[in-house]
Design a protein around this nucleic acid. Structure first.
Lengths: 193, 193
DNA sequence: GTCTATAGGATGATAGAC
DNA sequence: GTCTATCATCCTATAGAC
């Protein structure tokens, strides 16, 4: 059994990811943990402090180890494919990282965003940058990273709306299928088979 | 001077885009319009109805004409480039469409999402589907649409976090530069100059 | 069409017992 | 460390006057 403090972080991250900051009450979190609302204030000063602590905790937990896994492979195309497959699978298993990242881009104030970017993202961004320089030295690495990230995130997000759009196929594509599509498109574009 | 009803839709769309459904109260909207909170209920049955009406109104306004503009061009590559440039520019001028679309994908209310997708999105999705079938008949059109949409949205979203990442360049790229990058990548991938 | 007034409930936070 | 009890404030929504 986890300590109450960590259970609070875990539960708060879950609920904030799903419903956003304003959409979750202290009573919701307390209820999910199994304590009363007032008891939260023994662990955190207020709702804002709980939110920041939960997001920081989740981001540090989530980005751990992806960079190390990549460093082992020298061939850049293979490294790209591993990265895409790994990230898709990780974000499918635990969608909280993706959900909160997206929410942060929508509504976070600049100060919180800067703190998160520098503390939780920089280490993870660096090997990505090197990969892009190897893959396409004559292109803008940051633009490539944003293009790739946009595809990764959006394919998972879009699963929610896909069934309601015309020409919808039954069921959602699995991550290995998505990984194949994204890798091919990113490397060769639509004009190449 | 706009009629109160349309002013309500416009203001509600603005606030919901910025702060989300739970983050905006009826008082906030009424205050911004210049009436009292109770007066809203003369125009809309409840908060939910106002939200759906505002989002539908915004989406119909935003996606209007993009399809028509595209229909005039027969060459699919040119049509793709026009689409990318037009959407980037439109979303830069008025970010509300992008913000609410992203929020809809995050928020977990299936009923609202279904209503919006079917009423406001289907008409806009159809010409996109045809374009993809022309560009790459042997690929999955919906996957290509989500890939493209992901890039379009994320490049604009990422402007917020870009300055805090390593290797950041000064200032944000303008939309025509982004359009060039996205068009090239989508058509030919990173391996082609 | 807009107002005032108010019902009825949820919310963030605190005080103090155990 | 968690509880009960409570406060002040906010919320959506309704009733009825003008």
């Amino acid at each position: 059994m986890k300590e109450t403090q960590e259970l609070l972080l875990d539960t708060a991250a879950e609920l904030f990811a799903k419903h956003g900051y304003a959409g979750v009450s202290m009573r919701d979190i307390a209820g999910a943990v199994g304590i009363t609302q007032a008891a939260i204030y023994h662990h955190f000063n207020n709702k804002d402090a709980l939110y920041v602590a939960a997001v920081t905790w989740l981001f540090e937990k989530s980005t751990l180890g992806v960079g190390e896994q990549m460093a082992a492979i020298t061939n850049p195309e293979k490294r790209l494919e591993l990265l895409i497959a790994t990230m898709l699978q990780a974000m499918e298993e635990d969608p909280r990282f993706r959900l909160i990242y997206m929410r942060e881009l929508l509504e976070s104030d600049e100060r919180k965003l800067a703190a998160i970017a520098e503390s939780a993202f920089a280490a993870f961004y660096e090997p990505l940058n090197e990969l892009m320089l190897e893959l396409a030295p004559n292109k803008d690495a940051q633009l490539l990273i944003f293009s790739l990230a946009g595809m990764l995130f959006h394919h998972l997000e879009a699963r929610k709306i896909a069934p309601y759009l015309p020409h919808a196929s039954a069921g959602n594509p699995d991550t290995s299928f998505l990984a194949r599509h994204i890798s091919d498109l990113f490397l060769y574009g639509v004009k190449q088979p």
